[in-house]
């Protein structure tokens, strides 16, 4: 699968990229919402792994823009963030509206878990 990883911390991103590549995925990495849109434009991802806390436009703003394009409406998005679940719970409607398939709390998600969840994602039919 082709994964679009949106992760502002480059060291953290390196770790995720290596783990995902080892599991047979290709990964495009963006540090910001704007960069992520450019990368998605170059190659439509099969799945997006998104940190909500981004510099400049945040992850929710990214989601609104991402979902505004017809061709990306069905791409599964996984929130993988430092925002804990009890804070995200307030945004359940929002995440449903924006097609977030799951939310993972970074401090409680091992690389193995992340890779397993990504592997289980069902890519949008092209």
């Amino acid at each position: 699968m082709h994964v679009l990883l949106i992760e502002p911390d480059k060291l953290q991103a390196d770790v995720y990229v290596q783990a995902l590549q080892r599991n047979g995925h290709t990964v495009a990495h963006a540090v910001s919402a704007q960069g992520a849109v450019h990368l998605a434009d170059e190659q439509t991802p099969d799945v997006v792994v998104l940190e909500l806390q981004l510099p400049g436009h945040n992850g929710v703003e990214f989601l609104y823009e991402f979902r505004s394009y017809h061709e990306w409406l069905e791409v599964p998005v996984m929130v993988h963030s430092f925002v804990p679940p009890y804070e995200l719970a307030r945004a359940v409607t929002l995440t449903k509206e924006l097609g977030v398939v799951c939310t993972l709390y970074k401090p409680e998600t091992s690389l193995q878990n992340l890779c397993a969840v990504v592997a289980a994602a069902k890519p949008a039919a092209s």
């Binding site: 806390q53 510099p55 925002v83």
Partner: peptide
Amino acid sequence: RQPLQRLVSG
């Protein structure tokens, strides 16, 4: 969680 969002995440 992001008091300086224009500058940096976190």
